[in-house]
Design a protein around this nucleic acid. Structure first.
Lengths: 233, 233
DNA sequence: GTTGACAGGCGTACACCGTACACCTATGGT
DNA sequence: ACCATAGGTGTACGGTGTACGCCTGTCAAC
């Protein structure tokens, strides 16, 4: 008899990918191993290789899953709002998974999902009156902003396992920091409205992201109006 | 007697770091292991641990070595040219080592070298009349452009080990591509002045980089003139 | 039915990784 | 002359990705 305990549902590429995403969400990308993933699926490690060629392909697939969460394009909007929303939607999708950023950065392959996203973005510029030439360059300029992140420069990465230091040590370190990196201290102060106890609390990354995005979009708009072209030489 | 063969020069943190950089240059960052590095230095793997705490610290140190190649700041320039040169110098330093980009992206720690670079950049904005507030936001906006790269979206990553496909297959793939990603095809055509055989040859990454950088710098300049402030609420 | 191909899960094995721990030894200050 | 110590050694452990061969349940063709 086959019954008793219901037979485990058979694996599939999608099931493997979904489980990998869930596992990475739970334990982090660096703790995601083929063995651990197999265990999670109640299966022997080598079974996974019937569904993904190797770990790199697994990671590519996981990225595709994340990117699948990006909102579809809305054709009724003007180019600027359309691009803005799409990029911010990508950001949301990526930030839903803490590991996604690193995974996207480390992958270099262009899967069809990635190409489709880039294509729709390029289409928005074209529909908005951008020349193919200008579209090409602004796509480059958007760079990884397309994916909804840029390195979080001021992220403190407060290490909770760091050894606790005495107040005097902290004070000494703060003093040295102020001397060596006065400008960083200054802008950190500005960012926290002078409340230096909040420095570790981080800035409003969403605000910073939109700030940079809008500076770029403003610039693009101006270039478009001017009929900018790269004819160089 | 100690002579005969001259005794191997003793290790030091700097010697380890330099050897690691050279090895990564030669064999790539993913083939850089503690064991391989030790072998290169004619030493047993564990000997390295007297000079670096672990592999992560080794990578941090390597990044610092690379960043050491950035030109010093020139105080005689106006802010815009100063920032521009410094960022482009960082780009040069990073691109000298093919692995550096990935290494910088994967590290999250702020070593003193990194902080010093950020601080000098912030100082340029401040000296150019940017408020601490605006300086903070433009630093964020520069994002990884600070490090001289952004994801090379159109880099073909032509895999030479890819199986050769027949002309018919290639044609079929091209046709499918044109149908699924028409806008990408269009801007690729623009980028190569219509010579599609050059599509894989890549764009002028340096041009694209400076394009984006200048759009940002233009935007920053305008915000500065307007006395922009983030007082939000 | 019977058969045979085959998709998919299993087990073993290998080479490699980072690094903890104990040990040895040459060096230099006292 | 002493001994602490910095720095190189050797062994060992638990992890990794994955090549290779086997076994089994499913299903189409006869």
């Amino acid at each position: 008899m086959t019954g008793g305990t219901t037979r485990r549902a058979p694996l599939s590429r999608d099931r493997v990918l979904d489980a990998a995403v869930a596992l990475a969400d739970a334990v982090g990308i660096e703790a995601l191993s083929m063995r651990r993933l197999a265990q999670e699926l109640g299966v022997v490690p080598m079974a996974l290789y019937k569904h993904v060629a190797n770990k790199d392909e697994l990671l590519d697939g996981m990225v595709d899953v994340v990117l699948g969460g990006i909102d579809p394009a809305d054709a009724s909007l003007d180019w600027r709002e359309a691009v803005r929303r799409r990029v911010l939607s990508a950001r949301e999708a990526v930030l839903r998974h803490p590991w996604a950023r690193k995974a996207i950065e480390s992958r270099t392959s262009r899967t069809p999902v990635v190409l489709a996203y880039m294509d729709s973005l390029a289409g928005m510029f074209r529909a908005g009156g951008f020349s193919p030439d200008l579209t090409h360059h602004v796509m480059h300029a958007l760079g990884n902003r397309m994916w909804g992140f840029s390195p979080e420069l001021f992220e403190e990465a407060r290490d909770p396992s760091a050894p606790a230091s005495s107040p005097e040590q902290q004070q000494a370190m703060a003093a040295e920091f102020a001397e060596r990196f006065p400008h960083i201290l200054e802008i950190a102060t500005a960012a926290t409205s002078g409340d230096l106890s909040r420095v570790g609390g981080g800035c409003d990354e969403q605000f910073e992201f939109e700030f940079a995005l809008d500076v770029l979009l403003d610039g693009f708009e101006r270039l478009r109006e001017q009929g900018w072209t790269s004819r160089r030489g």
